[in-house]
């Protein structure tokens, strides 16, 4: 663990801002993921019903 962190610190940071978020709940990412799932359902069932219509 330590070696890994040293490794990271050894790199010249690109443009790191100094602040870090301590309490972070990825609410937006959860919403994004839900949207992704809905899009997936639309595409998948779109083809599914197209398949059924061609039986």
């Amino acid at each position: 663990m330590e070696a890994y962190e040293q490794l990271s610190e050894a790199k010249p940071a690109l443009a790191d801002t100094s602040t870090t978020l301590e309490k972070f709940e990825p609410k937006g990412a959860i919403a994004f993921f839900a949207g992704l799932v809905i899009l997936g359902l639309i595409i998948w069932f779109g083809i599914y019903f197209l398949m059924l219509s061609r039986i």
Partner: peptide, 16 residues
């Protein structure tokens, strides 16, 4: 959630 979505697809495939 991913598992649930895939299970739904699997069910639909088997249903058809």
């Amino acid at each position: 959630a991913s598992g649930a979505v895939l299970a739904l697809f699997l069910f639909s495939v088997l249903y058809a």
